[in-house]
Design a protein around this nucleic acid. Sequence first.
DNA 1: ACTCATCCTTGAACACGTTCAAAATTCGAT
DNA 2: ATCGAATTTTGAACGTGTTCAAGGATGAGT
Lengths: 220, 220
Amino acid sequence: MAAKSEQTRQLVANVALKMFREIGFEKTTMRAIAQEAGVSVGNAYYYFASKDELVQELYIQVQDEHATMAAQALEGVQDLAGRLKAVLHSGIDVMAPYHQFGSDFIATAIRPTSPVNPFGEASTAAREASLAIFRSAVEGSSPAVAKKLRGDLPELLWLAYMGVALFWVYDRSEGQRRTRKLIDGAAPLVARGLSLAKIPGVSKVFDDVLGLVRRVKEDS
Amino acid sequence: MAAKSEQTRQLVANVALKMFREIGFEKTTMRAIAQEAGVSVGNAYYYFASKDELVQELYIQVQDEHATMAAQALEGVQDLAGRLKAVLHSGIDVMAPYHQFGSDFIATAIRPTSPVNPFGEASTAAREASLAIFRSAVEGSSPAVAKKLRGDLPELLWLAYMGVALFWVYDRSEGQRRTRKLIDGAAPLVARGLSLAKIPGVSKVFDDVLGLVRRVKEDS
DNA sequence: ACTCATCCTTGAACACGTTCAAAATTCGAT
DNA sequence: ATCGAATTTTGAACGTGTTCAAGGATGAGT
């Protein structure tokens, strides 16, 4: 049983996540987690260097679940609008139990030094996994997305997804109805907007947008 | 001199803002502010209910300065792209001294309960002032923006500005060069994109976007 | 000059996240 | 079984934001 240590780690993580869900971020103090898990405060810190790292644990778990659910929801859906909806809705579904926790999570995540920061070093794996979902949504769609857009689109959609998540955090409507409405409205619009790439005048603007994105991204 | 009280308040605020600029958010402890200002900790709390309210003081001041500088930078500039650049660049200019402070500010601001939250109750005035800047940028431009866009555009641009501010916070390039580049590239693109509203196929998509924005906003 | 209600100011105290030296436990090697 | 090093666990202590009962200052009405 080399897993004695891992057992304690999991115990602390599980207790923490459960408390996050049930009583929120602020009321879930490190002392409360330790007490509930039956360990000392210092021991919790032996496994998680900060409260933020417990949030990261949650982030990773949510991300994993999203990947699974999205893959399932994408099955048999061909058109881009439908595929976008599938990915976005499943994302919201997975996050739902943590809605009250959302703003604290984002306040944590937005700090560049936080391990949970979606743009940061520490969550490279989670971000890649999330990006892969959008890549699959784009690549598997038919009719196919214009070739010149195909490369950058997943990243832009992922960025838009961050925006949707932000909207969701602030969404006080019951069951976050408004976010659902936003997704249902925006997904077909994005698909239709992209199909305009064929129009010459529009095509040029698209090119410039992509050019700008690349230039800013690479800090040339 | 009914201003004895106001004097203390200003003293605390000024010391706090100076320390925010010079040593950052975390190192500027309430105890340090009190000591530097020569008052007790409790006294600082008599005027500002929380550290967040001191951040709000900063937010309001930055917003005020932005309004002044933007109005000045808009003088004599006719085209929308130029006017957008003027507003965005002056915004970045005003925030520049607080760049290292940026992420802490945003982490504070993003919390729905925070007085600094740009969407929240407590900063209605500051938000309106900021919106007014964009309204003036849009309304004063010539050639004029398509009539059907004129109503919602300022709000959308303000939202985009929030995005630019977020980008700026993460921008580690010297002098935030990349943000400048983003502004210079995006402003003409937005202007050109909007001019596409004349094309029938595009016009329809624009209509739908506006429709969606209105529907989601009003939570119908 | 005196009163008293209102406004200011104080500093000790609380709960929090986090740290750390020390103690307890585990486990492979003998 | 025993030793010793590595791993795991403990709880007191630190500095933080924040609260609050207590006291001090102020000023209008007499």
